[in-house]
Amino acid sequence: MNACSHAYPSQQTEYAVQHSMLALRNIRKSFGSTIAVQDLTLDVQQGEIFGLLGPNGAGKSTTIAIATGLVAPTSGEVNLLGQGSPSQPSVRRSIGLAPQEITLYAELTARENLLFYAALYGVEHAGKRVDELLNLVELDTRATSRVSTFSGGMKRRLNLAAALVHDPKLLLLDEPTAGVDPQSRNRILELVRELSAQGKTIVYTTHYMEEAAKICHRVGIVDHGKMLDVGSPRELIARHGGSSAVTVTRSGVDERVVTVDPAAEVARQLAIGGATGLRIEQPDLESVFLNLTGRSLRE
């Protein structure tokens, strides 16, 4: 995790721009009268897992599309790896994208899909690389099966492998766990951690705050196309999470006490006696979003 996160939201230094793996400056994107992204500024530093957390329709996918050059911003500037705009093929070679959609060919086998993408990137020893990736996503035993026969979780893992085939430095994962079973979700989260440990920089969009809290070094809270705040989960909770609450049950009646020191409050309630139940509610990223936007992340 890089200390440059303190530069948010407006104090971007020249140093940060030069060393960012992904730098977005005052990005604005509108589709007709609909504004999808508003003056979004962001720096993702080398080696970090950066989460873009927000509800569906917040502008996360559009931001990813702008970052990869698939969508041109209405205004603003994109810089990848300090090398320039993603419109240059040499710059695009360094990024890998696992889009929210399953961007695989259903009637090709897992191996054929990966070999095809490897050929597009001119990967040397493509067969060996593809075998490694199939092992990594635990699909080696289904290498010659057509993707149309795969479960949702298997497709998601292969979708991720396709983004890795050319060994990119920057990986953009757009809702990589959408619609998968818990087992596949855990495997994908493990994979993201492994990739981060290998030194890859990862931008991870999700609307699951548990995922963001679990794997991201830093998180940007996005809503209605605006970046509301950026920081580590702990920092964000400290800034916007609000107080904890202790709920005590006596004679079947719940009493909720808001406190900044839940441990002390629990001790106090136990001293009073008569409690048949105690529940501690600590703030999380959901609370952060609620406090920042006035509504729930899942609304």
Binding site: A65, P89, E101, Y105
Partner: peptide
């Protein structure tokens, strides 16, 4: 429609 074109466009080809 299915997004595979995006992946092709992202590849280092014109």
């Amino acid at each position: 429609m299915r997004g595979t074109l995006d992946r092709l466009r992202l590849a280092p080809i014109t």
